[in-house]
Design a protein around this nucleic acid. Structure first.
Length: 417
RNA sequence: GUGGGCGUAGCUCAGUUGGUUAGAGCGUCAGUUUGUGGUACUGAAGGCCGGGGGUUCGAGACCCCUCGUUCACCCCA
Protein backbone atom coordinates (compact mmCIF):
# COMPACT_ATOMS: atom_id res chain seq x y z
CA UNK A 1 0.00 0.00 0.00
CA UNK A 2 1.26 3.45 -0.84
CA UNK A 3 2.07 5.74 2.03
CA UNK A 4 -0.32 8.41 0.79
CA UNK A 5 -3.79 7.94 -0.54
CA UNK A 6 -6.74 10.24 -1.13
CA UNK A 7 -8.43 11.08 2.14
CA UNK A 8 -11.92 9.69 2.75
CA UNK A 9 -14.60 10.85 0.40
CA UNK A 10 -12.05 12.28 -2.02
CA UNK A 11 -10.88 10.63 -5.17
CA UNK A 12 -8.95 10.97 -8.39
CA UNK A 13 -10.92 11.04 -11.59
CA UNK A 14 -8.70 9.30 -14.11
CA UNK A 15 -9.01 8.83 -17.86
CA UNK A 16 -11.14 7.69 -19.52
CA UNK A 17 -13.61 8.71 -16.82
CA UNK A 18 -12.28 12.23 -16.68
CA UNK A 19 -13.20 12.68 -20.33
CA UNK A 20 -16.72 11.75 -19.49
CA UNK A 21 -16.81 14.41 -16.80
CA UNK A 22 -15.59 16.96 -19.29
CA UNK A 23 -18.29 15.99 -21.79
CA UNK A 24 -20.90 16.05 -19.04
CA UNK A 25 -20.10 19.65 -18.23
CA UNK A 26 -19.77 20.42 -21.93
CA UNK A 27 -23.27 19.18 -22.68
CA UNK A 28 -24.63 21.02 -19.69
CA UNK A 29 -23.01 24.29 -20.70
CA UNK A 30 -24.33 23.94 -24.26
CA UNK A 31 -27.81 23.33 -22.93
CA UNK A 32 -27.95 26.35 -20.69
CA UNK A 33 -25.89 28.87 -22.64
CA UNK A 34 -28.32 28.24 -25.48
CA UNK A 35 -31.01 29.48 -23.09
CA UNK A 36 -29.29 32.70 -22.20
CA UNK A 37 -27.37 31.68 -19.11
CA UNK A 38 -23.86 32.98 -18.48
CA UNK A 39 -21.26 31.14 -16.48
CA UNK A 40 -20.33 32.19 -12.98
CA UNK A 41 -17.19 30.83 -11.37
CA UNK A 42 -17.46 31.64 -7.68
CA UNK A 43 -14.58 30.95 -5.31
CA UNK A 44 -14.36 27.68 -3.42
CA UNK A 45 -14.06 29.59 -0.17
CA UNK A 46 -16.49 32.05 1.35
CA UNK A 47 -16.92 33.77 4.67
CA UNK A 48 -18.70 31.17 6.74
CA UNK A 49 -21.50 33.66 7.36
CA UNK A 50 -22.58 33.35 3.74
CA UNK A 51 -23.57 29.77 4.37
CA UNK A 52 -25.00 30.34 7.81
CA UNK A 53 -27.57 32.62 6.23
CA UNK A 54 -28.71 29.68 4.16
CA UNK A 55 -30.29 28.14 7.18
CA UNK A 56 -29.35 27.36 10.72
CA UNK A 57 -31.41 24.23 10.86
CA UNK A 58 -29.74 22.26 8.11
CA UNK A 59 -26.96 19.79 8.74
CA UNK A 60 -25.25 20.98 5.61
CA UNK A 61 -24.24 24.20 7.31
CA UNK A 62 -24.32 23.23 10.96
CA UNK A 63 -22.43 19.96 10.98
CA UNK A 64 -20.95 19.24 7.60
CA UNK A 65 -18.91 22.26 6.62
CA UNK A 66 -15.18 22.27 6.19
CA UNK A 67 -14.27 25.49 7.94
CA UNK A 68 -11.15 27.08 9.34
CA UNK A 69 -9.69 30.36 10.46
CA UNK A 70 -7.27 31.79 7.93
CA UNK A 71 -4.04 33.66 8.58
CA UNK A 72 -5.98 36.92 8.66
CA UNK A 73 -8.31 35.63 11.39
CA UNK A 74 -11.23 35.30 9.00
CA UNK A 75 -13.62 32.42 9.57
CA UNK A 76 -13.72 30.70 6.19
CA UNK A 77 -15.61 27.70 4.84
CA UNK A 78 -15.32 25.55 1.75
CA UNK A 79 -18.62 25.91 -0.01
CA UNK A 80 -21.08 23.07 0.67
CA UNK A 81 -23.18 24.23 -2.28
CA UNK A 82 -23.12 27.11 -4.73
CA UNK A 83 -26.49 28.81 -4.53
CA UNK A 84 -25.41 30.87 -1.54
CA UNK A 85 -22.27 31.98 -3.37
CA UNK A 86 -24.32 33.01 -6.40
CA UNK A 87 -26.61 35.10 -4.22
CA UNK A 88 -23.65 36.65 -2.42
CA UNK A 89 -22.17 37.52 -5.83
CA UNK A 90 -25.49 39.03 -6.83
CA UNK A 91 -25.50 41.29 -3.81
CA UNK A 92 -21.85 42.19 -4.28
CA UNK A 93 -22.02 43.07 -7.99
CA UNK A 94 -25.62 44.18 -8.32
CA UNK A 95 -26.11 42.95 -11.90
CA UNK A 96 -29.15 43.78 -14.01
CA UNK A 97 -32.03 41.36 -13.65
CA UNK A 98 -33.03 38.86 -14.72
CA UNK A 99 -29.65 37.47 -13.85
CA UNK A 100 -29.33 34.00 -15.36
CA UNK A 101 -26.17 32.12 -14.50
CA UNK A 102 -24.83 28.58 -14.57
CA UNK A 103 -22.00 26.94 -12.73
CA UNK A 104 -20.06 23.71 -12.51
CA UNK A 105 -17.62 22.71 -9.87
CA UNK A 106 -16.86 20.92 -6.63
CA UNK A 107 -18.53 21.36 -3.28
CA UNK A 108 -17.46 20.01 0.08
CA UNK A 109 -19.41 18.40 2.85
CA UNK A 110 -17.98 16.47 5.74
CA UNK A 111 -20.29 13.47 5.69
CA UNK A 112 -19.82 9.75 5.94
CA UNK A 113 -19.04 8.69 2.35
CA UNK A 114 -21.33 6.28 0.58
CA UNK A 115 -22.17 5.21 -2.89
CA UNK A 116 -23.04 8.39 -4.77
CA UNK A 117 -21.98 10.53 -1.84
CA UNK A 118 -18.53 12.00 -1.50
CA UNK A 119 -16.98 14.71 0.61
CA UNK A 120 -15.84 16.49 -2.48
CA UNK A 121 -18.54 16.23 -5.07
CA UNK A 122 -19.27 18.06 -8.27
CA UNK A 123 -22.46 19.76 -9.25
CA UNK A 124 -23.70 21.65 -12.24
CA UNK A 125 -26.54 24.07 -11.82
CA UNK A 126 -28.32 27.25 -12.80
CA UNK A 127 -29.85 30.13 -10.90
CA UNK A 128 -32.20 32.89 -12.03
CA UNK A 129 -32.36 35.96 -9.81
CA UNK A 130 -34.84 38.79 -9.91
CA UNK A 131 -37.85 37.10 -11.48
CA UNK A 132 -40.98 35.96 -9.67
CA UNK A 133 -42.67 34.78 -12.85
CA UNK A 134 -43.69 31.13 -12.56
CA UNK A 135 -42.61 30.69 -16.17
CA UNK A 136 -39.06 30.87 -14.91
CA UNK A 137 -39.74 27.92 -12.63
CA UNK A 138 -40.90 26.05 -15.69
CA UNK A 139 -37.90 27.10 -17.76
CA UNK A 140 -35.49 25.98 -15.09
CA UNK A 141 -37.13 22.58 -14.75
CA UNK A 142 -37.37 22.19 -18.52
CA UNK A 143 -33.66 22.86 -18.95
CA UNK A 144 -32.76 20.17 -16.45
CA UNK A 145 -35.17 17.89 -18.25
CA UNK A 146 -33.50 18.62 -21.58
CA UNK A 147 -30.13 17.99 -20.09
CA UNK A 148 -31.07 14.53 -18.83
CA UNK A 149 -32.49 13.79 -22.24
CA UNK A 150 -29.27 14.79 -23.95
CA UNK A 151 -27.31 12.48 -21.73
CA UNK A 152 -29.69 9.72 -22.67
CA UNK A 153 -30.99 8.98 -19.20
CA UNK A 154 -34.55 7.79 -19.49
CA UNK A 155 -35.63 6.73 -16.07
CA UNK A 156 -35.69 10.02 -14.25
CA UNK A 157 -38.85 11.08 -12.55
CA UNK A 158 -39.62 14.63 -11.61
CA UNK A 159 -41.06 15.11 -8.15
CA UNK A 160 -42.80 18.40 -7.67
CA UNK A 161 -44.14 20.26 -4.70
CA UNK A 162 -44.84 23.76 -3.50
CA UNK A 163 -44.10 25.05 -0.04
CA UNK A 164 -46.34 28.05 -0.59
CA UNK A 165 -45.54 31.52 0.53
CA UNK A 166 -43.54 32.08 3.72
CA UNK A 167 -46.69 32.67 5.73
CA UNK A 168 -48.28 29.50 4.30
CA UNK A 169 -45.18 27.61 5.16
CA UNK A 170 -45.23 29.01 8.70
CA UNK A 171 -48.81 27.99 9.27
CA UNK A 172 -48.13 24.57 7.85
CA UNK A 173 -45.08 24.10 10.05
CA UNK A 174 -47.14 24.97 13.08
CA UNK A 175 -49.83 22.51 12.06
CA UNK A 176 -47.21 19.81 11.57
CA UNK A 177 -45.65 20.58 14.90
CA UNK A 178 -49.00 20.26 16.62
CA UNK A 179 -49.81 17.06 14.81
CA UNK A 180 -46.53 15.34 15.58
CA UNK A 181 -46.41 16.66 19.13
CA UNK A 182 -49.80 15.18 19.79
CA UNK A 183 -48.57 11.82 18.54
CA UNK A 184 -45.09 11.84 19.98
CA UNK A 185 -45.34 8.26 21.19
CA UNK A 186 -45.60 7.04 17.59
CA UNK A 187 -42.56 8.97 16.47
CA UNK A 188 -39.03 7.57 16.48
CA UNK A 189 -36.48 9.07 18.82
CA UNK A 190 -34.52 10.58 15.97
CA UNK A 191 -37.61 12.17 14.46
CA UNK A 192 -38.54 13.67 17.79
CA UNK A 193 -35.24 15.49 17.73
CA UNK A 194 -35.85 16.59 14.16
CA UNK A 195 -39.26 17.86 15.17
CA UNK A 196 -37.78 20.39 17.56
CA UNK A 197 -35.46 21.71 14.87
CA UNK A 198 -37.61 21.69 11.78
CA UNK A 199 -40.99 19.91 11.68
CA UNK A 200 -40.95 19.91 7.88
CA UNK A 201 -38.01 17.61 7.80
CA UNK A 202 -39.81 14.93 9.78
CA UNK A 203 -41.69 14.24 6.55
CA UNK A 204 -38.34 13.18 5.09
CA UNK A 205 -37.78 10.41 7.60
CA UNK A 206 -37.20 6.99 6.08
CA UNK A 207 -37.59 5.17 9.34
CA UNK A 208 -40.35 2.59 8.93
CA UNK A 209 -41.87 3.27 12.35
CA UNK A 210 -42.57 6.86 11.32
CA UNK A 211 -44.32 6.09 8.07
CA UNK A 212 -47.81 5.58 9.33
CA UNK A 213 -47.81 8.83 11.25
CA UNK A 214 -46.33 10.71 8.31
CA UNK A 215 -48.98 9.35 6.00
CA UNK A 216 -51.65 10.87 8.19
CA UNK A 217 -49.94 14.23 8.56
CA UNK A 218 -51.52 17.51 7.42
CA UNK A 219 -50.89 18.36 3.79
CA UNK A 220 -49.23 21.52 2.59
CA UNK A 221 -51.75 21.83 -0.20
CA UNK A 222 -54.42 22.72 2.35
CA UNK A 223 -52.42 25.75 3.44
CA UNK A 224 -51.77 27.50 0.14
CA UNK A 225 -52.78 31.14 -0.16
CA UNK A 226 -54.61 32.02 -3.40
CA UNK A 227 -51.42 33.53 -4.81
CA UNK A 228 -49.33 30.49 -3.93
CA UNK A 229 -51.91 28.19 -5.45
CA UNK A 230 -52.05 30.26 -8.64
CA UNK A 231 -48.27 30.15 -8.93
CA UNK A 232 -48.16 26.42 -8.47
CA UNK A 233 -51.05 25.85 -10.88
CA UNK A 234 -49.27 27.81 -13.59
CA UNK A 235 -46.13 25.74 -13.10
CA UNK A 236 -48.06 22.49 -13.39
CA UNK A 237 -49.98 23.60 -16.45
CA UNK A 238 -46.81 24.74 -18.14
CA UNK A 239 -45.05 21.47 -17.51
CA UNK A 240 -48.01 19.56 -18.92
CA UNK A 241 -47.99 21.73 -22.01
CA UNK A 242 -44.31 21.01 -22.49
CA UNK A 243 -44.91 17.30 -22.09
CA UNK A 244 -42.77 17.06 -18.99
CA UNK A 245 -44.12 14.34 -16.75
CA UNK A 246 -44.11 14.93 -13.02
CA UNK A 247 -45.59 13.58 -9.86
CA UNK A 248 -46.79 15.75 -7.03
CA UNK A 249 -44.95 14.78 -3.89
CA UNK A 250 -46.19 16.78 -0.96
CA UNK A 251 -43.56 15.22 1.27
CA UNK A 252 -40.84 16.84 -0.79
CA UNK A 253 -39.27 19.29 1.62
CA UNK A 254 -35.81 20.13 0.58
CA UNK A 255 -32.96 20.28 3.01
CA UNK A 256 -32.06 23.89 2.64
CA UNK A 257 -34.36 26.18 4.56
CA UNK A 258 -34.60 28.99 2.08
CA UNK A 259 -36.97 27.26 -0.32
CA UNK A 260 -40.53 28.46 -0.86
CA UNK A 261 -43.11 28.00 -3.59
CA UNK A 262 -41.91 25.49 -6.16
CA UNK A 263 -39.55 22.74 -5.10
CA UNK A 264 -38.56 19.79 -7.21
CA UNK A 265 -36.27 16.83 -7.30
CA UNK A 266 -35.09 14.52 -10.06
CA UNK A 267 -35.12 10.97 -8.85
CA UNK A 268 -33.23 8.20 -10.58
CA UNK A 269 -35.43 5.26 -11.40
CA UNK A 270 -32.86 2.52 -11.59
CA UNK A 271 -31.08 3.13 -8.33
CA UNK A 272 -32.51 1.42 -5.32
CA UNK A 273 -29.97 3.08 -3.10
CA UNK A 274 -30.87 5.85 -0.72
CA UNK A 275 -28.80 8.21 -2.79
CA UNK A 276 -31.24 8.34 -5.66
CA UNK A 277 -31.73 12.09 -5.89
CA UNK A 278 -29.91 13.10 -9.04
CA UNK A 279 -30.63 16.75 -8.61
CA UNK A 280 -33.06 19.17 -7.17
CA UNK A 281 -33.91 22.75 -6.67
CA UNK A 282 -36.66 25.23 -6.28
CA UNK A 283 -37.55 28.79 -5.57
CA UNK A 284 -35.78 30.74 -2.86
CA UNK A 285 -37.16 34.26 -2.89
CA UNK A 286 -35.68 35.80 0.20
CA UNK A 287 -32.22 34.33 0.22
CA UNK A 288 -30.68 37.40 -1.40
CA UNK A 289 -32.31 39.55 1.23
CA UNK A 290 -30.97 37.31 3.96
CA UNK A 291 -27.52 37.99 2.55
CA UNK A 292 -27.97 41.72 2.85
CA UNK A 293 -29.32 42.50 -0.60
CA UNK A 294 -32.66 43.83 -1.80
CA UNK A 295 -35.70 41.57 -1.75
CA UNK A 296 -35.08 39.45 -4.83
CA UNK A 297 -36.76 36.40 -6.23
CA UNK A 298 -34.64 33.38 -7.11
CA UNK A 299 -35.01 29.92 -8.67
CA UNK A 300 -32.49 27.30 -9.58
CA UNK A 301 -31.34 23.73 -9.38
CA UNK A 302 -28.21 21.70 -8.86
CA UNK A 303 -27.47 18.34 -10.41
CA UNK A 304 -24.92 15.95 -8.94
CA UNK A 305 -22.40 14.57 -11.40
CA UNK A 306 -21.67 11.35 -9.59
CA UNK A 307 -25.22 10.27 -9.10
CA UNK A 308 -26.26 11.22 -12.58
CA UNK A 309 -23.32 9.28 -13.95
CA UNK A 310 -24.34 6.31 -11.83
CA UNK A 311 -27.79 6.55 -13.35
CA UNK A 312 -26.19 6.62 -16.80
CA UNK A 313 -24.23 3.48 -15.96
CA UNK A 314 -27.35 1.72 -14.76
CA UNK A 315 -29.05 2.46 -18.05
CA UNK A 316 -25.97 1.80 -20.14
CA UNK A 317 -25.95 5.28 -21.64
CA UNK A 318 -23.31 7.99 -21.89
CA UNK A 319 -20.38 5.59 -21.58
CA UNK A 320 -16.82 6.78 -21.03
CA UNK A 321 -15.00 7.14 -24.30
CA UNK A 322 -11.21 7.07 -24.30
CA UNK A 323 -9.51 10.15 -25.66
CA UNK A 324 -8.08 9.38 -29.07
CA UNK A 325 -5.65 10.93 -31.51
CA UNK A 326 -5.92 10.93 -35.30
CA UNK A 327 -2.39 9.93 -36.17
CA UNK A 328 0.25 7.78 -34.53
CA UNK A 329 3.86 8.08 -35.61
CA UNK A 330 5.88 4.85 -35.60
CA UNK A 331 9.58 5.63 -35.74
CA UNK A 332 11.99 2.72 -35.73
CA UNK A 333 15.09 4.79 -36.24
CA UNK A 334 15.39 6.06 -32.69
CA UNK A 335 12.71 8.68 -32.21
CA UNK A 336 14.04 11.85 -33.79
CA UNK A 337 11.80 11.46 -36.83
CA UNK A 338 8.79 11.00 -34.57
CA UNK A 339 9.75 14.18 -32.77
CA UNK A 340 9.83 16.12 -36.03
CA UNK A 341 6.65 14.67 -37.51
CA UNK A 342 4.46 14.85 -34.40
CA UNK A 343 5.50 18.46 -33.96
CA UNK A 344 4.68 19.25 -37.56
CA UNK A 345 1.27 17.60 -37.30
CA UNK A 346 0.36 19.12 -33.96
CA UNK A 347 1.38 22.57 -35.15
CA UNK A 348 -1.01 22.09 -38.04
CA UNK A 349 -3.79 21.21 -35.63
CA UNK A 350 -3.75 17.46 -36.22
CA UNK A 351 -3.75 15.35 -33.08
CA UNK A 352 -0.83 12.99 -33.03
CA UNK A 353 0.93 10.69 -30.60
CA UNK A 354 4.01 8.48 -30.70
CA UNK A 355 5.91 5.84 -28.78
CA UNK A 356 9.08 6.37 -26.80
CA UNK A 357 12.17 4.47 -25.70
CA UNK A 358 12.89 2.99 -29.12
CA UNK A 359 10.49 0.11 -28.84
CA UNK A 360 10.05 -2.55 -31.49
CA UNK A 361 7.94 -1.84 -34.52
CA UNK A 362 5.48 -4.46 -33.44
CA UNK A 363 5.09 -2.88 -30.07
CA UNK A 364 4.73 0.56 -31.60
CA UNK A 365 2.07 -0.68 -33.99
CA UNK A 366 0.21 -2.05 -31.02
CA UNK A 367 0.36 1.34 -29.35
CA UNK A 368 -0.83 2.92 -32.59
CA UNK A 369 -3.82 0.64 -32.61
CA UNK A 370 -4.66 1.41 -29.01
CA UNK A 371 -4.28 5.15 -29.49
CA UNK A 372 -7.39 5.09 -31.64
CA UNK A 373 -5.47 6.67 -34.50
CA UNK A 374 -6.95 6.40 -37.98
CA UNK A 375 -3.55 6.55 -39.61
CA UNK A 376 -0.11 5.35 -38.67
CA UNK A 377 2.95 7.02 -40.13
CA UNK A 378 5.84 4.60 -40.31
CA UNK A 379 9.43 5.73 -40.57
CA UNK A 380 12.29 3.25 -40.92
CA UNK A 381 15.81 3.62 -42.20
CA UNK A 382 14.65 3.10 -45.82
CA UNK A 383 12.24 5.98 -45.49
CA UNK A 384 14.84 8.22 -43.94
CA UNK A 385 17.24 7.42 -46.81
CA UNK A 386 14.63 8.07 -49.47
CA UNK A 387 13.12 11.01 -47.61
CA UNK A 388 9.66 9.43 -47.57
CA UNK A 389 7.11 8.21 -45.07
CA UNK A 390 4.68 5.31 -45.10
CA UNK A 391 1.07 6.05 -44.35
CA UNK A 392 -0.85 3.07 -43.11
CA UNK A 393 -4.61 3.24 -42.60
CA UNK A 394 -5.52 1.43 -39.40
CA UNK A 395 -9.29 1.43 -39.60
CA UNK A 396 -9.88 0.30 -43.16
CA UNK A 397 -8.73 -2.36 -45.58
CA UNK A 398 -6.91 0.22 -47.66
CA UNK A 399 -3.28 -0.64 -48.42
CA UNK A 400 -0.47 1.38 -46.95
CA UNK A 401 1.41 3.73 -49.24
CA UNK A 402 4.51 5.89 -49.33
CA UNK A 403 4.69 9.64 -49.84
CA UNK A 404 7.58 12.02 -49.96
CA UNK A 405 8.24 13.87 -46.75
CA UNK A 406 7.28 17.25 -48.16
CA UNK A 407 3.89 15.86 -49.18
CA UNK A 408 3.28 14.21 -45.82
CA UNK A 409 1.30 16.97 -44.12
CA UNK A 410 -1.02 17.74 -47.07
CA UNK A 411 -1.57 14.03 -47.66
CA UNK A 412 -2.44 13.39 -44.03
CA UNK A 413 -4.70 16.42 -43.92
CA UNK A 414 -6.55 15.18 -46.97
CA UNK A 415 -6.77 11.60 -45.76
CA UNK A 416 -8.32 12.71 -42.48
CA UNK A 417 -10.91 14.98 -44.01
C1' G B 1 -21.94 10.91 14.21
C1' U B 2 -24.42 5.47 15.02
C1' G B 3 -24.75 0.28 13.41
C1' G B 4 -23.61 -4.12 9.87
C1' G B 5 -20.47 -6.29 5.62
C1' C B 6 -15.78 -6.30 3.29
C1' G B 7 -10.13 -5.27 2.65
C1' U B 8 -5.24 -11.09 -1.18
C1' A B 9 -0.94 -8.77 -7.66
C1' G B 10 -2.82 -2.43 -11.84
C1' C B 11 -8.28 -4.65 -12.21
C1' U B 12 -11.99 -8.80 -10.93
C1' C B 13 -11.44 -12.61 -7.64
C1' A B 14 -9.70 -18.17 -5.76
C1' G B 15 -7.14 -19.59 -1.52
C1' U B 16 -9.77 -26.20 1.58
C1' U B 17 -10.81 -27.83 9.35
C1' G B 18 -4.43 -22.29 10.53
C1' G B 19 0.99 -26.12 7.96
C1' U B 20 6.36 -26.01 3.75
C1' U B 21 8.78 -21.32 -2.06
C1' A B 22 0.59 -17.31 -2.09
C1' G B 23 -2.83 -18.73 -7.23
C1' A B 24 -6.21 -17.72 -11.74
C1' G B 25 -8.39 -14.57 -15.44
C1' C B 26 -7.92 -9.75 -17.54
C1' G B 27 -4.27 -6.01 -18.17
C1' U B 28 1.12 -4.85 -18.84
C1' C B 29 5.89 -6.20 -21.08
C1' A B 30 8.73 -9.52 -24.28
C1' G B 31 9.08 -13.39 -27.83
C1' U B 32 6.72 -16.85 -31.91
C1' U B 33 13.53 -15.97 -37.46
C1' U B 34 14.31 -11.04 -41.71
C1' G B 35 10.83 -3.58 -40.66
C1' U B 36 4.08 -3.59 -39.34
C1' G B 37 -1.52 -3.49 -34.99
C1' G B 38 -6.38 -5.75 -33.77
C1' U B 39 -6.49 -13.12 -33.36
C1' A B 40 -3.60 -17.39 -31.47
C1' C B 41 0.55 -19.61 -28.82
C1' U B 42 4.89 -19.15 -25.36
C1' G B 43 7.24 -16.69 -21.53
C1' A B 44 8.24 -12.70 -17.95
C1' A B 45 7.51 -8.88 -14.56
C1' G B 46 4.25 -7.65 -10.65
C1' G B 47 1.71 -9.10 -3.75
C1' C B 48 5.95 -7.72 3.85
C1' C B 49 -2.18 -11.19 1.70
C1' G B 50 -4.53 -2.62 4.24
C1' G B 51 -1.46 -1.45 8.89
C1' G B 52 -0.17 -2.66 14.15
C1' G B 53 -0.45 -5.99 18.18
C1' G B 54 -1.83 -10.91 20.07
C1' U B 55 -2.88 -16.49 20.22
C1' U B 56 0.17 -20.69 18.17
C1' C B 57 5.72 -24.87 17.03
C1' G B 58 3.40 -22.39 12.74
C1' A B 59 -1.64 -17.24 10.38
C1' G B 60 -3.71 -14.57 4.28
C1' A B 61 -6.74 -17.50 7.19
C1' C B 62 -8.36 -17.09 14.65
C1' C B 63 -8.70 -12.60 18.48
C1' C B 64 -8.05 -7.19 19.54
C1' C B 65 -6.98 -2.28 17.82
C1' U B 66 -6.49 0.92 13.71
C1' C B 67 -7.05 2.72 8.77
C1' G B 68 -9.76 2.30 4.32
C1' U B 69 -14.10 0.87 1.76
C1' U B 70 -19.21 -0.47 1.33
C1' C B 71 -24.48 -0.69 2.99
C1' A B 72 -28.24 1.30 6.24
C1' C B 73 -29.62 5.37 9.57
C1' C B 74 -28.80 10.57 9.31
C1' C B 75 -28.36 14.20 5.58
C1' C B 76 -28.62 15.43 0.74
C1' A B 77 -26.68 16.16 -5.06
Amino acid sequence: MPEFQTSPGMRDILPPDSGRWRRFVGIFSETVTAAGYGQIIPPLLEDIGVFHRVGEATDVVTKEMYDFVDKGDRHIALRPEQTASVCRAFVQHNPATPWKVWYAGPNFRYERPQRGRFRQFDQVGIEVLGVEDPYVDIEVIALAWNFFAKLGVQQVSLHLNSLGEPSDRERYMQALKDYFSNNLEHLSQASQVTLTKNPLRVLDSKRPEDQQLIDGAPRISDFYSPAAKAHFDTVQEGLRELGIAFVINDKLVRGLDYYRHTTFEFVGGTMDSAQNALGGGGRYDGLVEALGGPATAGVGFAIGLDRTLLACDDEGVFPPVPDEVSVFVVDITGGRQAMLITHELRSAGISADRAYQGRSIKSQMKSADRSGAVLAIIIGSDEVDSNTAIIRPLRSDQEQYAVSRKDLLPTITKALS
